[in-house]
């Protein structure tokens, strides 16, 4: 499916920088995302991928640079702001409250309340059963706390939470890291379906083959800088690996500030 990149991008993160103490975790990075597009973010451990997307999800605030949504400059200073712009995030750490059950986590911060203003737990549980059933039919463990779930089950809850609330922009930070092959395939199918619905998705993943399969474009980061951006059709898996490991930008890609000049 061709993606129209002539209009305004859904998201544009322009010249983002953020440092922790002396560490430049993200160093003048510019990325964009169009509706119906899946954009991969690749890079070695500590390259700054999670930090970059956390600026978009409201977990961090960038030191400099701007974020545009549908061409409008927005200020995202906390996760509530991000949710207001229909940005949903699956964090690498999953961000689940271990002592609560699946439904409480899924609806955390957006609980369903009855006419009296009290929580309607039964309704939330019923909805959770429906969502989880689509995502992971083997999931049965609805009333026990998340701490008793397997890694993959926890990840399923985090994914369900991100897709349940009509996201327009979805951030997935290594969403399949703990999943088995069958569940990974279900997430891949889910990504295709959401893409058809016109969502824009940032996907962080270490598996270049997965990125080539699922993404339309890929950004590679190294030491906080952008090495380059490429259409996945224009580069091979080895090209991507070269970008990740050596910071070499192949001919098919648009080089960024972090590319090595030979």
């Amino acid at each position: 499916m061709a993606i129209d990149r002539n209009g305004t991008p859904l998201v544009e993160m322009r010249d983002i920088s953020i440092a922790f103490g002396g560490v430049k975790a993200v160093d003048h990075v510019t990325v964009d995302l169009f509706p119906g597009e899946v954009v991969g973010l690749l890079g070695h451990n500590g390259a700054g991928k999670s930090t970059l997307i956390k600026c978009l999800s409201g977990a961090y605030q960038q030191d400099s640079g701007d974020i545009y949504i549908n061409g409008d400059k927005v200020s995202i200073s906390n996760p509530r702001d991000a949710r207001r712009h229909n940005i949903e995030t699956i964090y690498q750490t999953l961000a689940l409250a271990d002592n609560l059950d699946a439904a409480s986590n899924l609806f955390l911060g957006r609980e369903i309340v009855g006419p009296t203003g009290l929580l309607d737990d039964n309704k939330m549980e019923a909805e959770t059963r429906k969502v989880m059933h689509r995502l992971n039919p083997n999931f049965k463990n609805f009333t026990s706390p998340v701490s008793s779930y397997s890694g993959g089950q926890r990840q399923s809850v985090a994914i369900a939470r991100a897709v349940h609330f009509n996201a327009r922009i979805l951030i997935m930070d290594e969403p399949t890291a703990a999943l088995g092959p069958h569940e990974t395939q279900m997430v891949a199918d889910l990504i295709q379906e959401l893409k058809r619905q016109g969502l824009g998705i940032f996907l962080i993943d270490h598996d270049v083959h997965q990125v080539k399969k699922l993404c339309d474009r890929a950004n590679v980061m190294k030491n906080g800088q952008l090495v380059g951006t490429a259409n996945v059709e224009d580069v091979s898996a080895d090209d991507l690996l070269g970008m990740i490991i050596a910071g070499k930008c192949p001919p098919g890609a648009i080089p960024g500030p972090g590319a090595i000049h030979e």
């Binding site: 999800s57 977990a59 906390n78 996760p79 509530r80 949710r83 995030t89 964090y91 750490t93 999953l94 961000a95 689940l96 409250a97 271990d98 002592n99 609560l100 409480s104 986590n105 955390l108 911060g109 609980e111 309340v113 203003g117 009290l118 929580l119 737990d121």
Partner: peptide
């Protein structure tokens, strides 16, 4: 504790303060 948002947020924050904050809880 059991039936209000306030209570839910108290327990969520106790279970994982970072997760609570990332879910938009002040």
């Amino acid at each position: 504790a059991r039936r209000t948002r306030l209570g839910r947020y108290i327990f969520a924050t106790g279970g994982n303060p970072d997760a609570a904050a990332l879910s938009g809880i002040n």
